[in-house]
Design a binder for these strands. Structure first.
Length: 179
DNA sequence: CCCTGATTCGC
DNA sequence: GCGAATCAGG
């Protein structure tokens, strides 16, 4: 996985937005957080100590602020039917999500504070579009027309992206809570 | 232990 | 240039 202009631009954008290196790595896919940090330094992106060398521990911490919900965001009432799809907006904090609100089914990217796992935007791939390196986590009802797979980039030797990899190996009760 | 970024250095 | 290994912290 090489640093194409496109990927570098995304890196710059996410870094400037204050995402951590591991979060950015998850969003980009195919790279480690070390790779991201290394690239950031090679690009001389800001965020490091000033001349004089402020220790990392003494630097002001970036507030882990939740990205605002999309303006068209409305929580689905508990018993309301699940919409087929909704436009993808900014990432929202998992903590903000109503208990019954299933962000994964809604195809929103989710930043889970604490667990520090990023759900990349689903690429909504069909079965025939999957490859060795795409996430094979199924989304939706297989009998429904909108059934698809996550399709995000998955690490080597894993059928799932970093987020769904975690979900896949959690006990079902935890999995339900995590979703 | 989980995580963070910083640095080094063989490739 | 790249990034794993490592370090030094929270």
């Amino acid at each position: 996985m090489n640093w194409t202009d496109e990927r570098v631009e995304k890196l710059k954008k996410l870094w400037s937005e204050g995402l951590s290196a591991s979060q950015i790595a998850a969003q980009l896919g195919g790279v480690s957080r070390n790779a991201v940090i290394g690239k950031v330094h090679r690009l001389n992106l800001p965020g490091r100590a000033k001349a004089g060398g402020t220790p990392a521990s003494a630097r002001p911490k970036r507030p882990a602020q939740a990205t605002p919900r999309p303006s068209n965001f409305t929580a689905r009432p508990a018993n309301a039917p699940r919409p087929v799809s909704r436009p993808v907006g900014n990432a929202i904090a998992k903590d903000e999500i109503d208990t019954d609100f299933d962000a994964q089914a809604e195809n929103l990217p989710v930043v889970i504070s604490g667990k520090n796992v990023v759900v990349p935007m689903s690429r909504k791939l069909e079965l025939t579009q999957l490859t060795e390196r795409t996430c094979k986590w199924p989304i939706g009802d297989p009998l429904n027309d909108d059934f698809h797979f996550c399709g995000c980039e998955s690490p080597d030797n894993s059928p799932y992206c970093t987020y769904h990899q975690r979900l896949a190996y959690q006990p079902s009760a935890e999995r339900r809570r995590a979703r």
